[in-house]
């Protein structure tokens, strides 16, 4: 499939955010990382009680203020954008915020990614060519959360698969990703390998496989992405 035709069928970042938000279950505490993951907040179904954790000590992080004149430097997301607090939310200091993560209290974390490997290895903190990078809380959150959802485009700008046999970018956390959400597919990281659960309408499972470096397990239950 050529690039122009592909662009028409791929999920937009908003559609992807909607799909990831549907994965969040009633009663969960969920960390959202910088960038694309923050877009998921408004799309959690209204009847599900999901609380968001932000690494800077916010439990109950919610949408940006409706009127930005209320924006406050002391209430920002990890990506430094203005947010509000869900009723009943609370604040903790940084050491406690990361104890929440490493201590296993996060039901899920949604993180951006450069690469995810077959075994769930995650690379998301620096580009290989850079001398160093900004790790932030990515390593602590990916090792601590019960489930780590990687949210990314399926391929790089050069068309290379971001789902790989072995990460070539610097490692963030070993065997941490449990599910991969891309603009093309939903892929579960299972002990038996990568299982294609959903694919974007307009493509076939075979098209997704063609854009993916490792071999995908394609079960009979595979279905189009709904959001």
């Amino acid at each position: 499939m050529n690039v122009a035709a592909l662009a028409k069928v791929l999920l937009t970042s908003e559609q992807l955010a909607k799909r990831v938000a549907l994965e969040l279950e009633d009663g969960w505490l969920v960390n959202v990382g910088i960038g694309m993951p923050t877009q998921c907040l408004p799309f959690v179904p209204a009847d599900r009680d999901v609380q968001f954790h932000s690494e800077n000590g916010i439990i109950g992080m919610a949408r940006p203020p409706k009127d930005l004149k209320h924006a406050d430097n002391d209430l920002l997301s990890a990506g430094k954008g203005p947010v509000t607090l869900l009723q009943g939310g609370s604040f903790v200091h940084h050491a406690d915020s990361f104890a929440i993560s490493r201590g296993g209290r996060l039901d899920a974390a949604i993180l951006g990614a450069y690469q995810v490997a077959v075994n769930g290895d995650l690379a998301n903190w620096r580009l290989p060519k850079a001398r160093t990078g900004s790790v932030g809380g990515a390593m602590d959150i990916a090792v601590g959360a019960k489930r780590t959802f990687a949210m990314m485009t399926h391929v790089t700008k050069d068309g290379e698969s971001k789902i790989v046999n072995k990460v070539s970018y610097p490692m963030t956390a070993q065997r941490s990703v449990t599910k991969i959400f891309t603009d093309m597919a939903v892929v579960a990281v299972m002990p038996e390998g990568l299982v294609l659960e959903e694919y974007v309408e307009g493509l076939t499972p075979a098209d997704v496989q063609a854009a993916t470096e490792p071999k995908l397990i394609i079960p009979k239950t595979v279905k189009p992405i709904r959001f």
Binding site: H94, A95, F98, S101, G133, V135, G137, M139, D140
Partner: peptide, 10 residues
Amino acid sequence: EVVPQGSLAE
């Protein structure tokens, strides 16, 4: 010196 954020706090 880059330190993971949770390790920095701890």
